[in-house]
């Protein structure tokens, strides 16, 4: 997994609440057996019309937002299914960080597995960043994970909280499975004990 350090880039505003995983990646793109190549289908039903042409009103189809690396989004982003295709599609599009007041649990966890940083902030700060994002491509934000800071286009600094383990894994680009396999002795011990206490499992 790529390391996440610092991103400076355009932020796209998507104020709609409850953007669900079907909106992020519709099910007809779940038939792939690969992780890559989903970026062109991200937000497909809002982004394209029935004939497959771009819908000019959709934020990422506007020239000033095409190269967005940050999304500032409405409440409860990523609700719905567990499909990791949602973060795969966003990451493949080039999104590195997301800002919202809240996310669905599974989506939130899935982001970290794909080198993407979902940031949770109080409503006033999300509103402020939403306004900043609305300025378009002249307004570039910086997300600094090490310092846990977002710097707006006006130079204003907002700090955010993040679980230290998740931060460590993102910064180092660590693979969870490798980390867990280092604890194999504990897993063996647990299994031995469980085979006594709950032999029917």
């Amino acid at each position: 997994m790529d390391k996440f350090e610092k991103v400076t880039g355009v932020a796209a505003p998507m104020p709609l609440v409850n953007i669900d995983t079907d909106m992020i990646i519709p099910k007809n793109f779940l038939k792939t057996i690969k992780r890559t190549g989903l970026g062109v289908h991200a937000f497909a039903e809002m982004r394209y019309d029935d004939a497959g042409n771009e819908n000019p009103d959709f934020v990422l189809n506007k020239d000033k937002y095409r190269a967005a690396q940050i999304l500032v989004v409405g409440d409860n982003f990523g609700c719905g299914s567990s499909r990791e295709h949602a973060p795969w599609a966003l990451a493949d599009y080039g999104i590195k960080a997301i800002v919202s007041t809240s996310y669905a649990d599974i989506f939130y966890n899935n982001c970290f597995k794909n080198g993407m940083l979902p940031i949770v902030l109080p409503r006033e700060q999300v509103d402020m960043l939403m306004s900043d994002a609305e300025k378009g491509s002249n307004a570039r934000m910086t997300v600094d994970l090490e310092a846990q800071e977002i710097t707006t286009s006006d130079g204003e600094v907002i700090t955010f909280q993040i679980d230290p383990f998740k931060k460590h894994c993102l910064l180092e680009g660590l693979d969870d499975i490798g980390l867990t396999l280092n604890k194999e002795a504990s897993i063996d011990a647990f299994e031995t004990q469980a085979s006594q206490s709950r032999p029917w499992v």
């Binding site: 567990s82 966890n109 396999l181």
Partner: peptide, 30 residues
């Protein structure tokens, strides 16, 4: 790897959906 895994909670089992990276993690490490 499916959000409606919550269904199994009806038995008093702790049951939840996970993403594909976690599916791989469970396959490899249980």
């Amino acid at each position: 790897g499916d959000s409606h895994t919550a269904t199994h909670g009806a038995f008093g089992a702790l049951a939840h959906g996970i993403g594909t990276s976690e599916v791989e993690h469970v396959l490899a490490t249980q």
